[in-house]
Simulated assay, not measured.
Amino acid sequence: MQSSILPAVFMGWLAAKLEKKFRQWVPEVIDLILTPFLTLFTSLILGLILVGPTILIIENLLTEGIMYFFELPLGLGGVIYGGLIQFLAVTGMHHTIVPVTVKMVAETGYDIINPIGTAAIAGQAGAALAVVLAQKNRQKRVTMIGSVIPAFFGITEPAMFAINLPKGSPFLFGCVGGAVGGGLASILGLAAAGTGSTMLPGLLLYIGDGLLLYILVIIVALLTASYSLKSFIKRK
């Protein structure tokens, strides 16, 4: 369990529930001493005997399933993940993939999801940048640039919620860029030496192995989203 975080997360939730239950029947005069002891003792026993092993089995199956998904031929896994992950990002559900990436790095030493997620971010950045360049009002253009810059540091929310989502089509074309870049990353077999950083900060994870390919994936995703959106706007 030393390379796993899901059991720890679940145990934190279970301990909070147990504490509430114990406080309901422990006398107030000894609550300060007895409740923490009972909570920790019960959580420890349940964690070692039941919760930890069960969650670990589930986590291993989930990781194996995701690894199999990303090994689909012709970069199909990268296309699907790169194209759809930003739909999860809108709701904040993209954070559910973090335990899997942490476990992947702990067990294999690399993260194959990182470059695909980076492509998805680059796609949104490219679409937002296309909207900014098409904006003729100088004041609005300057304001919009402030929302695009964080995307180059791995934070897509400003660009998505301030520019892409309100207009609709930029978000979708950003996903197209993410799909193309993600597919390319899968075909190239690109993998990061760690996890947690994307876009420009993520360059540090590829120094010495795959740096140029990482930059290529970012450029492809960004340009695909930007130019496809520009073409769409011109046809309207």
Rank of each mutant, 00 (worst) to 15 (best):
Q2T: 11
I5H: 01
V9M: 13
F10P: 01
M11Y: 02
W13A: 08
W13M: 13
A15P: 00
A16I: 02
K17N: 04
F22G: 09
P27S: 04
L34W: 03
F37L: 12
L38T: 04
L38A: 10
T39R: 04
L44V: 08
I45F: 07
I58H: 03
E59Y: 12
M67N: 15
Y68I: 10
F70D: 07
G75L: 08
L76Y: 00
Q86L: 12
V90I: 15
M93C: 13
M104C: 02
A106S: 14
E107H: 13
G109V: 07
I113V: 15
N114R: 14
G123H: 02
G123D: 10
L133W: 09
Q135T: 15
K136M: 01
K140M: 06
R141F: 05
R141S: 12
V142R: 15
T143Y: 07
G146R: 01
S147L: 15
I155K: 05
E157G: 11
E157S: 06
A159F: 12
N164H: 03
N164Y: 09
L165Y: 06
P166D: 08
F173A: 08
G174R: 12
A179D: 02
G181H: 05
A185N: 07
I187V: 15
A191R: 14
L200C: 01
L200F: 07
L205F: 14
L205S: 06
Y206G: 04
G208Y: 04
I215H: 09
V220D: 01
A221F: 06
T224K: 11
Y227W: 11
F232V: 05
I233M: 08
